[in-house]
Design a protein around this nucleic acid. Structure first.
Lengths: 193, 193
DNA sequence: CCTACCGATCGGTAGG
DNA sequence: CCTACCGATCGGTAGG
């Protein structure tokens, strides 16, 4: 029991280090030697804790996909207006981008290096998420709560706007940043007098 | 003279194919064998037209940097309000994203694989561009034309919003898409009655 | 968890 | 523009 806990802990350390390396250099440019060095091991020893390099990427990508999916389920079933749902989703995206900024990069950019069948699985999950997001936007437009903008343009603008946050620009206060992004997307940048 | 033209033409073909591969698989995951096959050559023959793999990336990144820089100079010196300048910059970003969507991906995502001194050179150019963009936003806030949002949040929201466009979603009409993105960023998504 | 090592593949060169 | 080939490095395994 104790040994199982220790093993799973070391596994966690490897995953965290891998996520950081994938973010900084990309999946392909990160070698198992790099990763081993980062956790004070030899490359071959990594394989006592993980099955393969791709397994790491797969787990990071799917863990994040599940996180977004869980957040979406909660928002979808909450009894608030479409606009409030969208605000909640923007909050979620910013929170994840700030708190899991190492692993969310792999989720955003490195998933394409997954092999089958993980690749198709991941794409399907993302597609499902986008379908649910789009439905909320369309509902908001139908209720005349949102401007009549193409729903896909609306969604991708939101998704991409909440992605740069993880970058190096963490000298900004999160609450203020979150408010400003929401203000811009919801109210626009133009000052109305 | 003729041979020089032919050589430069083959060089162009290689660069175009490389940009496409870098976009689809990433720089690191694209081998010189892949690239050679894409232009019906053997890997070794590529070196009659280019100096190295990195030279291709360097040229793509710097060409795009210069394109954005040139657009910025034009906008900066135009005699219109800050808000109009920002609209012009959004237009430029969308136009480049749509028309040069193969090479702009390398510019956005693959530049980090550059070696020195090209890496520092690229970063400096990007920094300069962002400084100039920020100055316009600050001027717009000072003139009370824009909401008092953190200028960096405002800029990165704009930059990231105009990046997803190059993706596979080109089934949308560009003019309509461009209008919708601008409308969202400038006026916001909420419908005001 | 290590040493030793595998076949495959990498970017690139020599020589014609 | 090709064939032949280089040293380096890759992800991963065997065996202890």
């Amino acid at each position: 029991m104790l040994s199982r806990m220790a093993k799973s802990s070391k596994r966690e350390i490897i995953f965290t280090a891998a996520a950081k390396l994938f973010r900084d250099r990309g999946y392909q440019a990160t070698s198992m030697r790099d990763l081993a060095e980062a956790v004070d091991l030899k490359a071959s020893s990594l394989y006592n804790h993980i099955g393969s390099k791709e397994e790491i990427l797969k787990e990071i990508c799917l863990a994040n996909a599940d996180k977004f999916s869980a957040g979406m389920q909660e928002v979808m079933h909450s009894k608030v207006s479409p606009l409030e749902k969208i605000k909640a989703l923007i909050n979620m995206h910013i929170n994840i981008a700030v708190n899991d900024y190492t692993s969310v990069t792999s989720f955003n950019d490195e998933w394409r290096h997954l092999g089958e069948p993980a690749l198709s699985d991941f794409k399907e999950k993302r597609k499902k998420y986008e379908r649910e997001f789009l439905a909320i936007i369309k509902e908001g437009i139908a209720q005349k709560q949102l401007q009549d903008i193409n729903p896909m343009v609306c969604m991708y603008t939101i998704l991409s706007s909440t992605q740069w946050v993880y970058d190096a620009h963490l000298d900004l206060d999160q609450a203020q940043m979150s408010m400003d992004i929401k203000r811009m997307l919801i109210n626009g940048m133009e000052l109305r007098v």
